[in-house]
Write a protein that binds this DNA or RNA. Structure first.
Lengths: 329, 329
DNA sequence: CTGAAAGCGCTAACAC
DNA sequence: GTGTTAGCGCTTTCAG
């Protein structure tokens, strides 16, 4: 490994002169400067990142990004938003926990020893205690949950509102017997979406019916099948797109037409999915990439101890496609 | 920031004793050891990662992972495979180039200054010269292209074979007038898939017809529309799933039935996509996660200068779904 | 302009 | 067992 010292020796100057030239600081005679630069190039000199970071307050930061599954479009988009802010001078260490909560907590704890300057935690199932603990050492950004700890900023979506507009949209389109296939109650977002749905129903004099179910296609399929057998339904608001797609499958199997007999709306607006399924699926869109950007920005702000906010609330919007375009007959 | 020196002072011992305790090396009296550990805990001491890396051959490695778009399931899966091998003691710096070749090359060049010990380049459009250049400084793993440089290992899929089995499958199912909607010719993989298709056709006495087109849904849709107007077709082998989905849309619009009138096979086997589209899409599966694992493993091997291979070739397999289940009528 | 020297925080010989 | 000391590679005063 070639060091600044090697260069100094060859150029017959001191290391500090070389350092100055390489960093463009202080003044050095043009002659020496050229010579030193040339030598450095010839020797393929690479400054030692770790030595640099040690001896000076260097401008490059490192942030850790923890996600439960980078393969999930939500987290991939999140990562993308983060990348949009970083890359050039902020490094992102990606860690995938494979939805293993234990691994996740271990990774988060470990991150502190890996020289990161801050952490973005891309999901909300980690314990509050852990967030509190880690935030004593590093600034932290979390999603989908509110924290009052100093050194922590929360990025949340207005899930209530998203669910509300989705439900209201179905009502406006003429559907009346609208059910909600929701997530389990451990997740804060599930609760919020459920509340939004309920509020919209009540505001329109309709009675809500909620089926807490889960988060994947199969769960949606099975639950919808059950509901169709037992109930009079003409509308479904699902907690996410996967569940909605399962529901669509069940509805089709039963020989019912979407949107003519039943309207369906999902959540997340995974575009590939929503546009590929037939009929195409209306869905509530979260500005995930922007949320990722906000996360990275405010983390960097905290790291540089600039002014910061405690919480960002993003607004969802409804993307209307075929699956909810109006009841007929 | 609390350092080992602070601890030493409080405990009234030397820094080396503290270091020994903290690293579990050498022998220290039980009494002091407990005391030191306690102080460290009380002070919330965090070892300085950069100082450590400087003063010793530390066991944790850092690798850079460059992808053109983490949002693309292919690269997300790749990242996942890499993560499966890393995380605990190998850090992964993720860099997304946003499909901007210039940014990509800049990032790759820059990575060298960020203390990474090796690089995985997740696509093949970077210039050979750059790969050569970078591999002078760091071990490199590249995908989908063969390199003979020392310090570079290639991970490739047998695209020829994949295309061959896909085409042969269509033939076996009774389709005869099979066309290939392919990628542009800049990409090595496009060429290989095209060759595989041609070979299969010729081996069965059929004449190949290739339409180099592109990589997204819209391109597939438009091209298929044109083909349907001009030609007699009963089978399509597409260069990827997106293109296939576009083709399916065009075929349906034309009022033709899949698989009864026309059989369709894609490539990549993006499961969500393939199973969501109707009819579900047969596709050639790449073991992407495994490829990512192999990439990470062999990179770490190179870093530790263990024995290494020059090249990994993975075999694709065909996943048969509805879209190619046989011609009728 | 240029160089000597003091650290950054930690590890690892090597004495005691 | 424990402490002293010499680096790791680089930046940064501070003299000259």
């Amino acid at each position: 490994m070639v060091t600044i010292k090697d260069i100094a020796q060859i150029a017959n100057v001191s290391v500090s002169t070389v350092s100055k030239v390489l960093n463009g600081k202080g003044r050095v005679s043009e002659k020496k400067r050229r010579e030193i630069l040339k030598i450095a190039r010839d020797l393929k000199y690479t400054p030692n990142y770790y030595a640099r970071r040690m001896s000076s307050r260097i401008r490059v930061h490192t942030i850790g990004l923890i996600v439960p599954d980078i393969t999930n479009p939500f987290f991939a988009k999140l990562a993308r938003g983060v990348q949009r802010v970083c890359g050039e001078d902020v490094l992102v260490i990606l860690m995938d926990s494979f939805r293993d909560l234990e691994r996740e907590e271990k990774l988060i704890r470990k991150l502190r020893f890996f020289g990161v300057d801050g952490i973005i935690i891309g999901n909300s199932r980690v314990s509050d205690d852990l967030v509190k603990e880690v935030s004593q050492f590093l600034p932290v950004v979390v999603f989908d949950k509110n924290y009052e700890y100093k050194n922590v900023v929360s990025i949340v979506l207005d899930n209530f509102h998203g669910a509300y507009i989705a439900t209201k949209h179905l009502i406006d389109k003429g559907y009346r017997n609208i059910v909600h296939i929701g997530g389990t109650h451990e997740l804060y977002v599930s609760l919020q979406r459920e509340e939004g749905y309920k509020a919209a129903m009540k505001d329109h004099g309709l009675s809500p019916r909620v089926y807490p179910t889960g988060y994947d296609e199969l769960k949606g399929y099975k639950m919808m099948k059950r509901i169709l057998k037992a109930e009079n339904v003409d509308g479904v608001f699902c907690m996410n797109d996967l569940v909605a797609i399962g529901a669509i499958r069940a509805i089709k199997e039963r020989g019912l037409k979407i949107p003519d007999h039943i309207g369906v709306v999902g959540f997340d607006n995974d575009e590939e999915l929503c546009e590929t399924v037939s009929p195409s699926l209306s869905s509530v869109h979260q500005p995930v990439e922007e949320m990722g950007e906000a996360a990275a920005k405010s983390l960097v702000d905290m790291i540089s101890s600039r002014i910061r906010v405690r919480k960002y609330v993003f607004s969802p919007r409804l993307v209307v496609r075929e699956s909810s375009s109006g009841k007929k007959g």
